[in-house]
Write a protein that binds this DNA or RNA. Sequence first.
DNA 1: CTGCCGATTTAC
DNA 2: TAAATCGGCAGA
Length: 192
Amino acid sequence: MTKLKRGFYTRDAVTVAQELLGKFIVRKTNGHTLTAMITETEAYKACDKACHAYNYNRTKRNAVMFNEGGSAYVYLIYGMYNCLNVVTDREGEPSAVLIRGAEPCGDEEYMSFMRYNKGFSELSSYQKKNFSNGPGKLCIALDIDRSLNGESLMGDRLYITEGREIKSFKTGKRIGIDYAEEAKDLLWRFYL
DNA sequence: CTGCCGATTTAC
DNA sequence: TAAATCGGCAGA
């Protein structure tokens, strides 16, 4: 599968969020190549109160969001979970796409041990259903943490490739941002 | 330095 | 339904 190039990422976050559906995340770690198909995304932009870089406010944490599109933004939430984002748009325009969910489709066995410390075939149907259907779960399965913050997606450790052809997708309000006032009703969540 | 709270998950 | 658990950030 072809690795996505810079030009894919240097566009508006909402566009990138929609087009990321069906693409494959590839993560190389400890000699393993883990793969998962993206099934759910959310867009975040500077004009949006739910965004870490709202109003172009720059902090130590969100610094990579100001980069040119094409790197990873990984942050810790609730003190214990990592969330993977894809930085989008041009340099100086802080925006990103949160990867909220993905379906395992390559080296499930290794991912299963990362997540549940047991083989994929031993998982209950409940565990399979909840394998990587949330941002924190996804990062556990793919062995992603803040050491990958700022990592180039054009590199070899973490990147995204062309994927499945998507005929249609659903749209909704973003999750967990009730504090964001008027921005909370934006339909910037996309899923299959 | 203090204190609040979050782009969540899981277990009770 | 609530606990777990800690870094980021604002305000003093």
